[in-house]
């Protein structure tokens, strides 16, 4: 087990060194014109910037290591579901003052869905599951409707983009189907919450592009955003990148 892990790590390391060998600029020059560059940067280069970030030494052993391969991706999903479940648990525990009965009912549903997701991953991962994360909600004013709904909307859109970006990193078909079963529920949440914040924005052009495609994000992109709400250090350096 240890040996296998070491092999994986050294393969990763080799991959990163090679990725550094050909300068990014030469690839961009190869790829073409200015207008194209912008789009390529979004799809093609994101993984590379993630890699170079991972290259920086990671001091200390505190926090959790998501692990590698499919287990790593499932732990990544588990981490996000922990964050969401903790958030909605607090929302229902201390609802904002102007909350309507209808909102309370649906936000309670969402809390239960996120708890179901969290517990599912915990059970499915069993001994390979990361520990419970310590969240940091100090930036959220749970008495404020705007703060709560704004955060909820951001979490749901982030969750959708995380699952969309992680799908192609999974190797096991059944895990992909499970991720698919969850992501559409997150998208249903997102559309509802977006409309609460801004009517008509259920699939706004800040999340759906002009080809009708939703947003996907790589794990490093997602964790950078989610990290603002998590105290526990998350080591994602062994996650697959393609």
């Amino acid at each position: 087990m240890d040996t296998k892990h070491d092999v994986n790590q050294s393969e990763d390391a080799i991959g990163k060194i090679e990725a550094k060998a050909l300068p990014r600029r030469s690839f961009l020059r190869y790829a073409g014109t200015g207008a194209t560059l912008v789009t390529l940067t979004l799809t093609g280069i994101a993984g590379i910037s993630g890699c170079s970030k991972d290259n920086s030494p990671n001091p200390g052993n505190e926090g959790v290591d998501l692990g590698s391969d499919d287990i790593g991706i499932l732990n990544y999903a588990y981490a996000l579901e922990q964050l969401e479940a903790a958030f909605y648990t607090q929302v229902i525990k201390s609802p904002f003052s102007s909350i309507t009965d209808g909102e309370m009912a649906l936000l309670t549903d969402i809390r239960d869905h996120e708890i179901a997701h969290r517990e599912f991953f915990k059970t499915a991962l069993a001994a390979k599951a990361i520990a419970g994360l310590e969240v940091d909600f100090s930036k959220i004013d749970f008495s404020s409707r705007d703060s709560v709904l704004g955060t909820a909307k951001a979490f749901e859109d982030l969750g959708v983009s995380a699952y969309n970006g992680a799908g192609s990193l999974l190797k096991t078909p059944n895990y992909l189907v499970l991720a698919g079963k969850i992501v559409s529920v997150e998208a249903r949440h997102a559309a509802y919450l977006r409309d609460l914040v801004t009517p008509g924005s259920f699939a706004g052009d800040d999340v759906v592009n002009n080809m009708g495609l939703d947003t996907s994000r790589t794990p490093p992109q997602v964790l950078q955003i989610a990290g603002a709400y998590v105290k526990t250090k998350i080591d994602a350096s062994h996650l697959p990148t393609s």
């Binding site: 969309n164 992909l176 992501v183 998208a187 249903r188 949440h189 559309a191 699939a203 009708g212 939703d214």
Partner: peptide, 24 residues
């Protein structure tokens, strides 16, 4: 679609838009 990660990602990006529509 797992054999083609680009097509898979595009399909997932459509899939979640359909879910947003359904919700609405």
């Amino acid at each position: 679609l797992m054999s083609n990660s680009d097509v898979l990602t595009a399909a997932l990006n459509i899939h979640s838009v359909e879910a947003r529509h359904a919700s609405q």
